[in-house]
Amino acid sequence: MLAALTIATAVAALVLAAWCGFAAYRDQPTKDWHFIGMAVVSLLALVQLVVGIVQLARGERPEQGTAIFVGYLIGTVCCVPAAALLSLGERTRWGSVTVAAGGVVLAVLQVRLYDIWGG
């Protein structure tokens, strides 16, 4: 895996979590700008999925197993969009809390992906 991409995705996810957490603190729901931020973080996760699949296709293997690695890759791609959908259903401060939690979960998944690959 590309360590720089993993770090960039984790940092972007934490920034999104802080941003939405601040909105929740101010008793605000997610707004259009938050969804743009979610799209950027989701795009980084999608790029990471493509890079991971390409590396697997080239014959590189993660230390802790290919199935676990692919499962975590799919989970990282689904994490923030799922939080975005939930926040659309809850147009109160709790929608912002949901996205903040999704950002933290994505950052933790990035650390786990790095460990699975053998970092």
Results as ranks from 00 to 15, higher is better:
A101P: 08
L109I: 10
I53W: 13
A39K: 10
E63Y: 00
L14W: 00
M38D: 01
A23C: 12
G37M: 06
R61A: 02
G59M: 02
S87A: 15
E60V: 07
Y72F: 13
L109T: 06
T92M: 10
Q64V: 05
E63W: 04
Q48C: 07
A12D: 07
V108T: 15
S87T: 15
L5A: 11
L106Q: 03
V47N: 03
G59K: 03
G95C: 01
I68K: 03
T76H: 11
Q48T: 02
Q110D: 03
V41M: 01
R58E: 15
Q55T: 14
A23D: 15
M38T: 04
G71W: 07
V54R: 14
V11I: 11
M38P: 06
L5R: 01
V51I: 14
V80T: 05
Q48M: 13
V15G: 04
A17N: 05
G102T: 02
V77A: 14
I7L: 08
L113M: 04
V51N: 15
G59V: 06
L106R: 02
G95T: 08
G59F: 05
L44Q: 06
A4M: 05
I53E: 15
A18K: 05
A83I: 08
Y114T: 08
A24W: 11
V108I: 15
I7R: 09
A23M: 12
V105P: 00
A24F: 13
I68V: 11
A100L: 03
G103E: 00
A23P: 08
R91I: 11
Y72T: 01
I68Q: 07
I7F: 07
G21R: 01
L44E: 00
A13K: 00
G21L: 12
P81S: 09
V99C: 12
V70P: 05
F22N: 12
D32C: 03
V99P: 08
A13W: 01
R112L: 10
Q28A: 08
D115W: 07
R61G: 02
R91V: 13
C79R: 01
T30Q: 07
A57H: 09
R26W: 10
G37T: 02
A13I: 02
W117L: 12
T66K: 04
L43W: 14
W117D: 00
T92D: 10
I68H: 05
E90F: 13
D115M: 05
I7K: 06
R91K: 12
A107T: 03
A23R: 10
A67K: 09
R26K: 12
T66V: 10
A13R: 01
V104C: 10
A23L: 13
S42V: 10
T30P: 07
T98M: 15
V54Q: 15
L2M: 11
A82Y: 14
F22C: 11
A84Y: 04
H34M: 11
L5N: 09
L44D: 00
A107D: 04
W94C: 02
L73H: 13
V15C: 02
V54P: 09
V77K: 11
R93P: 06
I68G: 05
M1R: 02
S42L: 06
T92E: 05
T98W: 13
G71K: 00
V77I: 13
V104L: 13
Q55C: 14
V51M: 15
A83E: 07
S87Y: 14
V47F: 09
W117M: 11
V47G: 06
L5E: 08
Y72W: 10
I36M: 07
V47C: 07
R61Q: 06
V15D: 03
W94R: 11
K31Q: 14
V40D: 09
P62W: 03
L46N: 05
L86Q: 13
